[in-house]
Nucleic acid binder design. Structure first.
Lengths: 197, 197
DNA sequence: GTCTATAGTATGATAGAC
DNA sequence: GTCTATCATACTATAGAC
């Protein structure tokens, strides 16, 4: 019976984590099943005992991560904070996701556009729409409530905000001196107050 | 004799432009030489009359674009504006580059990290270093001159600014209603003043 | 759960005719 | 400048032994 505090990862989970690291580092298409098998110390054919295909590996990674993220988003949306506070909360939750699911976010940033061209990954497009609806909604409510500037171009600020948050996965390294909360604080300060003296 | 106002593109230039569009749209690795040839209406073997390899195509695209961009950066750096004005100018020049060399910027954003692992593309790493030196230098000078907030974390603001500018290539479409100058204006306003009321 | 062995395909690139 | 034809290699995936 494994200790409750450290559930033993199954071999399958280990392999998936190895694949995630490689996909994140060099891209889905640039990672071969042989690369994954090599990194795991087995032969490529053995991978197919655990997974149907290379695609199903990345599918499982992205779906699991997004499901978890949306639990947090839904809770924030359902809370009774002000629009601005909700916006800050979803930004913080997103930076936390970069800290906790670094590989998955990196894969999503690099390969989602390509993967979304296959029917199998159609859910990526649907989730993207839902994401935009949530974030632009909060911006619009913030403008309406007077917490944000009245003359904002919401569509443009949305893209600015979205990109600013997720692109941080390119340089942020979990386990360094900066916590996700630190980065979120600084990003929100810049976004809300600007850098001008 | 071709008209001076519209120099005829050579067949080679046409092929390079076709390759650029495909690389930008689906990534370097996801684009095959057959894809490029198909799009040009020729067979893949014929491409090798014009280019040594697929790599040399992307090499030429990135190098040409970066050389041109650095002419602008160097001129801005050498001007006698204030640090803040120089910073605004390099941001504007970068958005202009997204407008004028959309495919090249997109390729750079998607594939530079992967390509830089080959010696042939070592210049990408060197240029990246030069870029960071220029931008962080301007931020530091802006803080020193009192134009920017004194308590800025320059390294973090640099990454924020850099990513915010270049990642716009993902959604910006040249020829739409927004000019690069429009986008630059809005981005700079957010960056300098923030979105808080 | 992993290995051996291999099928089937896609890919970058080349040689020589037209 | 393009085509025909093809090579050599790399890739995903499968079948069956251990």
């Amino acid at each position: 019976m494994p200790a409750a505090s450290a559930p033993e990862p199954s071999r399958r989970d280990e392999l998936l984590a190895i694949a995630a690291g490689l996909f994140a580092e060099r891209g889905f298409k640039n990672t071969t099943v042989r690369d994954i098998a090599d990194a795991a110390g087995i032969l490529s054919g053995s991978l197919y005992h655990h997974f149907d295909s290379k695609e199903s590996m990345v599918d499982e990674l992205l779906d699991t991560f997004q499901t978890e993220l949306w639990k947090k988003y839904d809770a924030i949306e359902a809370s009774d904070s002000t629009p601005k506070a909700k916006l800050e909360a979803v930004v913080r939750a997103s930076f936390e996701a970069i800290g906790e699911h670094h590989s998955e976010v990196a894969i999503f940033q690099s390969d989602a556009l390509y993967l979304a061209t296959f029917e199998r990954f159609g859910y990526l497009i649907e989730r993207n729409r839902k994401f935009r609806t949530l974030w632009t909604g909060l911006l619009e409510q913030g403008v309406a409530s007077g917490e944000l500037k009245a003359d904002l171009d919401v569509a443009l600020v949305y893209r600015f905000l979205r990109d600013t948050v997720w692109v941080a996965v390119r340089w942020y390294r979990p386990g360094g001196t900066l916590t996700p909360a630190d980065v979120a604080d600084q990003y929100l300060t810049i976004l809300l107050e600007g850098i001008s003296q």
